[in-house]
């Protein structure tokens, strides 16, 4: 049997994981001395509540190789093979831990794949991998499916504020993009494994219009998701617009988890999409 393993930056919550029959290895989130397993000890709602009420910048760290090895061992010893799909190697060291763990096992028992994306974008790759498994693909074909599809995934986030990107020291290229005088909301994009500035707007309304415009321009689509960052009200603004643009697609709702949320901060809204071939 082929098992799919991912990490918590996919923002797949434990009960969803159980339903899908996959393993989600948690990253670690720390607020000062307090330490949480992402999504397990700290769900996204609790995370954003904390984030809004503290000046302490949370830190995240990748899972240890041993956390992955534990999961892989369970499956391999049961005679299963593993396809392990993770956050872009350019955004986190998670993939490295997973690869280290995989090297302990016989060749081809554990296949580790870089999703080159994050969050709802990873979810598309996990879900389509599961569909491949269900359709009877072998592990190599499932791995190849992920690698083939990842170039068609896009994740776009409209940040409400730059404060958290600043605090986390991850502002980088976005700094020159958003300037410093006017209150500009950046729209960032995760593409080819990296975060790119995509557009900048002066108001949330303009930003939501821009997200919908992007979804339309990227069509035709095979998958479409909308997510918020601790602000469910934002979803109700964008979801109907996306559904109107793609009446035949289910717009999968979700929430951006702690790892990416640490940098986005609360109040953001975004979309993920999987372009048709």
């Amino acid at each position: 049997m082929i098992r799919i393993v991912t990490d918590s930056t996919s923002d797949i919550l434990p009960d969803q994981a159980k339903r899908l029959g996959i393993d989600v290895v948690p990253l670690t989130v720390r607020f000062g001395d307090e330490q949480f397993r992402d999504g397990i000890d700290l769900d996204p709602d609790a995370f954003y509540r904390r984030l809004s009420n503290t000046t302490v910048q949370p830190r995240t760290s990748q899972p240890t190789p041993e956390q992955f090895a534990e999961v892989y061992r369970r499956h391999v010893s049961a005679g299963d093979s593993v396809v392990s799909v993770h956050i872009s190697a350019k955004l986190s060291g998670t993939l490295q831990s997973a690869s280290l763990a995989a090297s302990e096992f016989p060749d081809e028992a554990v296949r580790v794949v870089d999703s080159t994306t994050v969050s709802a974008g990873m979810q598309f790759l996990v879900r389509t991998a599961l569909a491949d498994v269900a359709a009877g693909s072998d592990a190599a074909a499932v791995e190849k499916g992920v690698a083939d599809r990842r170039g068609r995934v896009g994740v776009y986030v409209l940040l409400d504020t730059l404060t958290y990107l600043h605090r986390g020291g991850r502002i980088g290229r976005a700094q020159s993009f958003v300037g410093g005088i006017l209150n500009v909301k950046p729209l960032l994009c995760v593409r080819d494994g990296e975060v790119h500035p995509e557009a900048r707007v002066r108001s949330r309304q303009q930003g939501i219009a821009k997200l919908v415009e992007i979804a339309v321009a990227q069509g035709p689509l095979e998958g479409l998701a909308a997510f918020h960052c601790g602000a469910p009200g934002q979803l109700s603004l964008i979801q109907p617009l996306l559904e109107a643009a793609y009446p035949d697609l289910e717009v999968i709702p979700g929430q951006l988890g702690a790892v990416v949320g640490t940098y986005s901060g609360p109040g953001g809204v975004g979309i993920a999409l999987l372009r048709a071939r």
Partner: peptide
């Protein structure tokens, strides 16, 4: 002028 320069 400062605003325009800050915006690139």
């Amino acid at each position: 002028r400062d605003i325009l320069a800050s915006l690139g």
